[in-house]
Design a protein around this nucleic acid. Structure first.
Length: 217
DNA sequence: GGCCAGGTGTAAA
DNA sequence: TTTACACATGGC
């Protein structure tokens, strides 16, 4: 693949779908909580839980971290897997309350390892927190990015998260804004195409717009 | 009623 | 090391 091809593809996504401006939040902590609550659910459901937290607390790490598990479960319930997420959220909030200030000075690689060591923070959530809450240049190699890379002929179906991420970093500049938009655009692009849900469906076709500009889905 | 949505941890093979 | 499964709500 020629250097710049992927960057051009991302810019085409931006022209087709428009600027996304993820992640809507009032603070880095709120962004991190959003990344946790959106795990395996829609943003709509995560937002319902975020609204509950805004209504019940000042939405800072100390007050959220000191809520009981029972209270947290009730508040995050709309985001699904609420018993699991309540515990993950408590762990994140308690860490954040103690470590956020010093974490801002920690090198990205080390900070990622620290986040990954927290309960319930896997590779994708860690990278979302790094990219949106800590403004670190991370390419998020989620399922959508992996499918998109595969459909562009860049990877195989079983290419690992780490390998897709490495390719993303190799082909895209360390531009925070571009990487933030790239993640959002890749998600939106996939969600707007039937083929994303039915990869083997003969009836699924690209939208006229995307086909015209040569975008893979 | 079934499928899908901005994953992760755990346990068995 | 890989695979299977549990976790669970809300919209369509």
């Amino acid at each position: 693949m020629c250097t710049g091809t992927l960057e051009r593809a991302v810019r085409r996504l931006s022209r087709v779908h428009g600027p996304q401006h993820w992640w809507p939040a009032g603070s880095p902590f709120e962004m991190a909580v959003g990344a946790l609550l959106v795990q395996h659910t829609s943003w709509r459901n995560a937002e319902l839980a975020l609204e509950n937290l805004r209504g019940a607390t000042a939405f800072d790490a100390v007050s959220v971290g000191h809520l009981s598990i029972g209270n947290l479960e009730a508040l995050v319930r709309p985001s699904g897997t609420f018993r699991v997420k309540a515990r993950r959220l408590q762990a994140l909030a308690l860490w954040w309350a103690c470590e956020f200030e010093s974490a801002t000075a920690v090198p990205t690689r080390d900070l990622r390892a620290t986040l990954r060591a927290l309960h319930g923070i896997g590779p994708e959530t860690a990278d979302c927190v790094l990219l949106y809450a800590f403004s670190r240049p991370m390419f998020i190699a989620d399922a959508y990015a992996r499918r998109w890379f595969y459909r562009m002929g860049l990877t195989k179906p079983d290419t690992t998260y780490a390998a897709v991420q490495h390719l993303g970093h190799a082909q895209l500049p360390d531009d925070i804004g571009l990487l933030q938009e790239a993640h959002a655009l890749i998600v939106v692009h996939n969600q707007r195409h039937c083929v994303a849900r039915h990869p083997n469906c003969e009836d699924c076709t690209l939208s006229d717009t995307c086909a015209r500009v040569g975008l893979a889905v």
